[in-house]
């Protein structure tokens, strides 16, 4: 499978990338690691006329401790997140989830921010970002803006990002909850989750679901039940409240609902909630 022809440009900086995107509009796509975009292009589900390869902008590859949050740059690869001592210490959920994404070869190329910006409801990392209450720094022609990931995911592969904007950084509030859990149901270890669940504990636990709707989302009804004092087994029954899980060759919708309730219960118990 060969992608349709396109032009390719390597910008010098994030600002340069935004200027190129502003010039080319809908025709252009941002390339970082390419582990989501290239498969789509090979299937010709995506046929951009121009690829803006930000993967070579070294200033965008970093993991830094700032006051009150950890900042991770747009081109920081999954393998860097997976092995980061700083993240293992401050936000252990994130490297744990990352270590279960795809396989080592994909993790050597793919980026955390790219996976988030892709907006795939089946993304483990999108659920982790929701559970961790992360926010994104987005650069456009008018400058930078910040948005919580909770408001970023709008629909299937649809995110709050204009064609002339790029996500330059993800911020994870610290200290993250010391109690957390990630559960994922797969047929083979490198598969996408049929259903997954990421939980960050603390006084106001956040519960996020993988592959349970058209977008990555929080299980707000579970969170409300916990806040009202419900025990884990009871709260987990609300995991399917208001969601419309897809049916596909891996699982019908009803089976996903069953899995979500089971995985949420196991996650809550693992996180001692």
């Amino acid at each position: 499978m060969i992608p349709a022809a396109f032009d390719y440009v390597v910008p010098d900086s994030a600002e340069h990338a935004v200027a190129l995107l502003a010039d080319h509009g809908d025709e252009a796509k941002v390339l970082a690691g390419g582990q989501s975009l290239l498969p789509l292009m090979k299937l010709r589900l995506a046929t951009p006329g121009l690829l803006v390869d930000i993967g070579r902008i070294n200033e965008l590859s970093y993991i830094r401790q700032e006051t009150g949050y950890v900042a991770i740059g747009a081109t920081t690869r999954h393998c860097d997140v997976e092995w980061s001592g700083l993240l293992r210490q401050w936000v252990p959920l994130l490297p744990h989830v990352t270590s279960q994404v795809a396989d080592p070869q994909v993790r050597h190329r793919g980026t955390l921010v790219g996976a988030i910006a892709h907006g795939d409801p089946a993304s483990d990392l999108a659920a982790a970002a929701l559970a961790l209450d992360a926010s994104l720094v987005i650069l456009g022609p008018q400058g930078a803006r910040a948005t919580p990931v909770a408001q970023f995911f709008r629909g299937f592969l649809d995110v709050d990002l204009s064609p002339d904007e790029i996500v330059t950084e993800i911020r994870i509030p610290t200290p993250a909850a010391s109690a957390w859990s990630f559960q994922k149901f797969v047929r083979r270890s490198f598969d996408w989750a049929i259903v997954g669940c990421a939980i960050a504990g603390g006084p106001e636990p956040r519960v996020a679901l993988v592959n349970m709707d058209s977008r990555p989302l929080r299980a707000l009804a579970v969170e409300e039940a916990l806040a009202a004092g419900a025990p884990a087994a009871e709260a987990a029954a609300y995991a399917t409240h208001g969601v419309t899980p897809p049916s596909d060759l891996h699982a019908p919708s009803e089976y996903r609902m069953h899995l979500a309730r089971v995985l949420v219960r196991r996650s809550l118990q693992e996180a001692h909630l």
Partner: peptide, 27 residues
């Protein structure tokens, strides 16, 4: 497989394993 699944195309780029069916030569 040509879909980034099977790993038959695995090579090393700058010392790390990658799937060369899901990487542009320009990268």
């Amino acid at each position: 497989c040509d879909t980034s699944t099977c790993g038959a195309c695995t090579v090393h780029l700058d010392g790390s394993s990658v799937k060369s069916c899901t990487l542009l030569a320009v990268q």
